[in-house]
Design a protein around this nucleic acid. Sequence first.
RNA 1: UGGGGAAUAGUGUAACGGUAGCACGACUGACUCUGAAUCAGUUAGUCCAGGUCCGAAUCCUGGUUCCCCAACCA
Length: 566
Amino acid sequence: MNTDNSTTRLDFIRAIVAEDTKTKKWDARVVTRFPPEPNGYLHIGHAKSICLNFGIAAENKGGLCNLRFDDTNPTKEEGEYVEAIKEDVRWLGFDWADRLYFGSDYFEQMYECAVGLIKAGKAYVCDLDPEQMREYRGTLTKPGKNCPYRDRSVDENLDLFERMRAGEFEQGFRVLRAKIDMASGNLNMRDPVMYRILHAEHHRTGDKWCIYPTYDWAHGLEDSIEKITHSICTLEFENHRPLYDWFLDELDVYHPQQIEFARLNLSYTVMSKRKLQQLVQDGLVSGWDDPRMPSICGLRRRGYTPGSIRNFCKRIGINKFNSTVDIALLEHCLRGDLNKTSPRVMAVLRPLKVIIDNYPQDQVEELEAVNNPEDASAGTRKVPFSRELYIEQEDFMAEPPKKFYRLAPGREVRLRYAYFITCTDVVKDAGGQIIELHCTYDPATRGGDAPDGRKVKSTLHWVSAAHALEAEARLYDHLFSKENPDDVAEGEDFKSNLNPNSLQKLSSCRVEPSLGQAKPGQRYQFERLGYFCVDTDSSEGKLIFNRTVTLRDTWAKIQKAQKKKR
RNA sequence: UGGGGAAUAGUGUAACGGUAGCACGACUGACUCUGAAUCAGUUAGUCCAGGUCCGAAUCCUGGUUCCCCAACCA
């Protein structure tokens, strides 16, 4: 039974693609591309675009999606980002096969095209400096005016452009502009710059070039050269579409269709490259791969699965208006995936010692535990049980409030896969802090069931004190404490909304011995606590776990509600 | 009198002139050796005002609100 009707309900972009395929607009070809600029790391907003572009290609017979680096600005871009981006796209589960391209590979062709445009009288070399150009451009409400260089002869333009390429001029002096319309209501059409002089080393072309194409000039050409059918980009490029079309029309070359969709916004986090960069630079997070970051590498380190991110991207839809998706949906997708695949294990985050007074002093039993109730093939494992154990501090209350049905004085609970125990005594230190519990166990309940059929209200996780491994756990919460981090008081910025409790490190956790071999990246469910994965900082001698996401926690909600009442 | 986009439950999205549906969240309840998962249910919506029509989220008119654009960034 498949009630997933997402395949029959097409978003507006897929609808366009389907229609074009039907009418054979592009000879029934479907070719998309994901065109990152290698000047930073990918984040989950990029994942939306990646899933869209690679997804559309995969859903259509013979469809292709290229990975193309839009590397037209050597002052901002670096080769190191290229590898990181490739790794992230691959990790997300997409394959560009042999179609890895770079805008810089087309520089020569672009140059030839520009020469053609000059010859056609559609482009000219302009000597205005940036400030003058701004003045000539006009404003949103006032038309611009033609610059004095607009009517240079074709020969003069050709000569100057050639000399720009030859490196005769200083950086910032002289640009090549398209001759369109200085009075256009669309500022992008007011004779946009096509080439600027940049005496900078390019990560791929080295010092071969000192003029570089701007986005508007380069992007459509890149799409055209690669015979892209649907050039999908974000909303802010809508104003650029007339220019995209103008260039390709004037050049009279293959002309893809540009389609714009809305970026992803997520509650409790920021998505702009600039802001994320700032968090890294200011040391407010440990790096781009800090598990609290919405970057792909951050999510990966946190323990997110590629499948959960893909599923999320499928469910948020595609539209043309700004919206903010509740991060709870991302977490829902994550839990859904992790629940099916994560081996269960017992770990105690904040240990409280329990002594089973009537359990033989040096006896150890190996009790059988289920690895994954969602997956019978995951099998079972043995967990050691002994007289001294640790349970979770919050699983005991000396004076239990209503609806607390874990351990309390005189109360009987089950230790998972082990025995029923009853609390007989509470030991406190001088300061009144509970330091250990004394309990008795019922030998007849071995394995966790009472032969007389009596029930207990709750089941606790535990570890054997002598056998447990010490570990560190890093508990994460939302990076920002406000749903919209940009919602700030006058004079403040988004950083003032950082959640001071977004990271909590617990260094004296105890985990069951089966975790001794755990390798970085491996994911587990710590029963009753959440999903955890081994951090890259972890080593054989020092286990470190990241809490990927908590389990849904009804008790926490009840507590919250009770607190509110008071 | 700049130009371009867009408005559907708290959130995200369907419905393309014919019963406003789905998911997340929240709230009930069932089940439970994870207060998890699972299952059942409740909650709540067409930006506003007119108009066309037997019938409007959808078409028309006029408003309102929000987003993008004045880099030699992408």
